[in-house]
């Protein structure tokens, strides 16, 4: 298990719990009571710590290596019916962007998401969740496929940003994201987007135009990562905590400013501490909104989608 720097109390209690369990297994001393107490204390510590996370701590949780990534969500939500489809039909298959059909309780859905690697080797294979233009084009191809067969789309956003590289620029990273924005606005099928971890900038928005946009409780979503913001505005990476606060990037902040449609709760202790409960929360929200959105007329959905994004902004007119 990986513990974050502010989870020290939990870590110590967990270590004690392990030891107690080992004693219990030997069967010479009865420590049932101690174990129960420890478990209770762990829950209490989690509750206490997670009740008042700072914006930067939210960012840390969103990047937790044990956090469920897109494919984990997709497999859970589709009950392992997911069939991954590959390639953008132009250049190659981007491993940082996954997509394909799956079924939720008998209804077929197009799943799309940015995928991070689950270990050191896979992180490189997935390019740390940073898609290239072909990733965004693959996503758009699959969305078009869903539209053709009238299947709703669910996207899982989890990226530190679109990849900044030579080939990405050569193949039009900007154009690929821009194209997705305008095309997703006019998709005739329901689109639900969920920021499950990191929602960094245009790279996140590139699959983030939906009738409903949700964030998991500990996810973050903004125009830039706190580190990069700190580098640009304070000329040092050390102000990342201050930058995280200034950017108002937490789910609660985003909802307060009407820039997302809702927050999906995470179990106490964060999604990494209990995958199953996280999936249950997501399933509940997704099913509810899929039903509602499916009842609407396509034109009405598009109109509302456009009206929602058009209303985003804050200014004064004199």
């Amino acid at each position: 298990m990986v513990f974050l720097d502010f989870e020290n109390d939990i870590k110590e209690l967990m270590e004690q719990l392990e030891k107690s369990r080992a004693i219990q297994e030997k069967g010479k001393v009865d420590v049932t009571k101690t174990i129960a107490e420890l478990e209770d204390n762990i829950n209490k510590a989690r509750e206490r710590i997670y009740a008042e996370l700072t914006p930067w701590q939210h960012v840390q949780v969103s990047r937790h290596p044990d956090r469920p990534y897109a494919l984990a969500h997709i497999n859970a939500l589709s009950n392992n019916t997911f069939i991954e489809l590959h390639g953008d039909r132009t250049v190659k298959d981007d491993k940082a962007m996954v997509g394909g059909f799956g079924s939720i309780d008998g209804k077929t859905v197009m799943f799309i998401g940015q995928q991070k690697g689950i270990n050191a080797k896979m992180r490189v294979y997935r390019n740390f969740g940073m898609a290239n233009p072909e990733g965004y084009r693959k996503a758009l191809r699959l969305m078009r496929l869903a539209e053709k067969f009238n299947k709703p789309i669910i996207t899982f956003i989890d990226t530190p940003g679109a990849y900044p590289g030579i080939e990405a620029e050569e193949r039009g990273q900007g154009e690929a994201i821009a194209r997705n924005l305008i095309e997703m606005m006019q998709l005739k099928v329901p689109v639900i987007c969920i920021v499950i971890g990191e929602g960094a900038s245009g790279g996140a928005l590139g699959i983030g135009i939906g009738d409903k946009v949700f964030m998991l409780e500990n996810a973050w979503y903004s125009v830039i990562s706190p580190e990069s913001c700190s580098t640009i505005l304070w000329r040092t990476r050390d102000q990342k905590e201050q930058a995280a606060a200034a950017l108002k990037l937490t789910a609660a902040d985003m909802l307060e400013h009407n820039l997302i449609d809702g927050i999906i709760p995470e179990p106490i202790g964060g999604a990494h501490s209990d995958h199953e409960s996280t999936f249950q929360f997501v399933r509940k929200e997704v099913k509810k909104h899929l039903t509602r959105l499916s009842k609407m007329d396509a034109e009405e959905r598009i109109e509302k989608r456009i009206a929602k994004f058009s209303a985003m902004g804050s200014f004064v007119e004199e």
Partner: peptide
Amino acid sequence: EAAYSLMQMAK
């Protein structure tokens, strides 16, 4: 303007 600014791309 952080996320407000990001959403202008969508808008």
